[in-house]
Design a binder for these strands. Structure first.
Lengths: 344, 344
DNA sequence: TCCAGGCAGGTAACCGGTTACATGGCGAAC
DNA sequence: GTTCGCCATGTAACCGGTTACCTGCCTGGA
């Protein structure tokens, strides 16, 4: 009690009048020990407030490591939901799971990965879209090799594969398909001037959504118009600002909006509202992700199986599934934010 | 490479032709080593893909432990925001932080606490309101002593203190004050029949909000009416269901709603909407917490400094602040969900 | 020329567990 | 009455680092 945390297995052994091996056996269980001896040990443990040291334990006996998920921020529902899936599957597999946040800071990401591999985490799951440049490729390849050297598996979620020799598993969504479907939904409601809000060149998630958007337009014979593709980060604030700026430039010139994700949609709706344009009365809008704001805003959006993604990442990491890269399907959720356009 | 994660400091020493002590010194830094020797060591490290074992390291050298925050679910914005504050402050203090989720399961909570104390976490931060019964008190007291015995600090967030001899720090919000203020806001807008949606007897957070609600009514000479206090858990679904049921029973009998938190408000608004009642046209509503749905719903609510709570918890745990229990203030955020009632 | 002192680097004890192997005691079988 | 063998328990090596202490060498001053 005077020096907390300093009670060792030897103290317990001395107090109980047995050897350290016996104490260890009593605590581990599954080993024949006389009831009398067991009780002496357990009493000593209680009296001394003994807590085994996990580091010492991990050092000698190889036990399953933890499963860690690394995300930008847990305050973004997209990440939170995936983390939840990871937690559930990890618990089911008898593993402990941890969530680590980087705040989008590469330096922090690096020190977290460093620490996780020193901890010999069983798996490290990196989530989130990124700008796919050489620097990124190089960094991920280094992570992959370093983690592999430490005996940890690396799973990338929602990120493109790294290439042949790199030891990294991959799982993601079919962004192009979802974007195609939701754009087609707007087109079949009669919309032709559809604003894409969320352009981010080089950004993998956005790029694949844009690709889906463009291919749907092309299929319906609607020419792509660069003026209808507007840049915006995937946050509420960015959606608001971008829409605000756009509306300030002059008449909208669009009847519908495809927002890069639900947060962007949420910001855009507020901007439209402040400009006196109602949804879906004046402007139809669809989002992407199907995270909480979507429900409150009655937003038609693309549902992503976040939970499933997290679970799949864990199963991949533990070798329960073979196929990587694994692409999960999505589907549209129709709520009330799209209004059919009458024939002109 | 053949047996991953099995490269030890002795392998590196052998390869570099030096002793283990030298390798350790090179890696630790801050010790005079000839440049030639250092380079030999660093080359060997690179060639062998050596990763120091964090457990072995922690075993010999006492270094700062991690700071862990334990919450029900990271998918609830309330928890996510607090976790974010913890992360930020921990990073600032040069500590790693981890988020662990229990899914509201006491068994999982227990095994997480168990693991964290074995890991010798520097601090364990438990967040969230609870049913305050003897079983809970006993469990927390046990955690507190067990963690103290392992040398970890325990911080309770948004939970009542445990009593004198129990080694636990406490930080929370002034729920009663916030509830009083927001109820007074409705009263001064002319509302007299105010439904409280979120009763949960024994539940500490709800209880203190109800207390603030009742005291505000009393101050304005409005008699408390048990029929206006409705039970609901603090989720969107519960808010929806409770309001749905209430409306099915007959005419509302209230002109305003004080929802236990923003999620409940969000559910209630949907139920009102489906019943043909608009907000704030027909019914005024206020929430609590000021988490994301509040902004989209233009909800008048009570802002909680989640970020500050997380930061305060870390500072308390690290002994940077003395005062515990620490109560953080709150303030109303007026948006558009309350309509003044004209005189009848 | 000899010795003190400083510095790079090695040796080995130690952190706190787990577990292979050794030991002693006792009952069963001969 | 031996001997065999099993069972409960003890002894000590080991996991992979850190670090106190020691050694050997080189330099500088008397």
């Amino acid at each position: 009690m005077s020096t907390p945390g300093r009670v060792t297995i030897r103290d317990v052994a001395r107090r109980a009048g047995v050897s350290v091996a016996t104490v260890s056996r009593v605590l581990a269980g599954g080993y024949p020990v006389l009831a009398v001896t067991r009780n002496k040990v357990l009493r000593a443990v209680r009296e001394l407030d003994y807590v085994p040291n996990a580091h010492a334990r991990a050092l000698s006996a190889a036990r399953p490591g933890a499963i860690a998920i690394v995300v930008d921020s847990v305050a973004m529902p997209y990440y939170a939901y995936i983390a939840q899936g990871v937690e559930e599957q990890a618990a089911q597999e008898g593993r402990l799971s941890l969530i680590c946040t980087t705040g989008g800071d590469t330096g922090r990401e690096l020190s977290i990965v460093q620490l996780l591999r020193e901890q010999r985490a069983e798996a490290v799951i990196l989530v989130g879209s990124v700008i796919l440049d050489d620097e990124y490729r190089k960094r991920m390849t280094e992570y992959a090799h370093a983690l592999a050297a430490a005996g940890s598996r690396l799973v990338l979620c929602g990120r493109p594969p790294l290439g042949e020799g790199v030891p990294a598993l991959v799982v993601g969504y079919d962004n192009t398909g979802g974007a195609h479907a939701v754009t087609a939904h707007l087109l079949s409601a009669g919309h032709r001037r559809i604003l894409y809000l969320g352009l981010r060149p080089g950004h993998t998630t956005s790029d694949s959504r844009v690709a889906g958007y463009r291919s749907a337009l092309a299929e319906h014979g609607v020419p792509a118009d660069p003026a209808l593709e507007v840049e915006a980060e995937f946050t509420r604030e960015a959606g608001y600002d971008a829409m605000k700026r756009r509306l300030a430039e002059g008449p909208p010139g669009f009847t519908a909006v495809f927002a890069g994700n639900d947060l962007v949609a949420s910001g855009a709706i507020q901007a439209l509202d402040e400009h006196g344009l109602s949804v879906p009365g004046d402007v139809s809008i669809v989002g992407y992700d199907d995270v909480p704001p979507a429900q409150d805003l009655r937003l038609t959006t693309v549902h992503l199986p976040h939970d499933e993604l997290g679970r799949a990442a864990v199963r991949l990491a533990l070798g329960r599934m073979a196929s990587s890269p694994l692409i999960l399907g999505t589907h549209i959720v129709v709520r009330g934010s799209v209004r059919p356009l009458g024939p002109r």
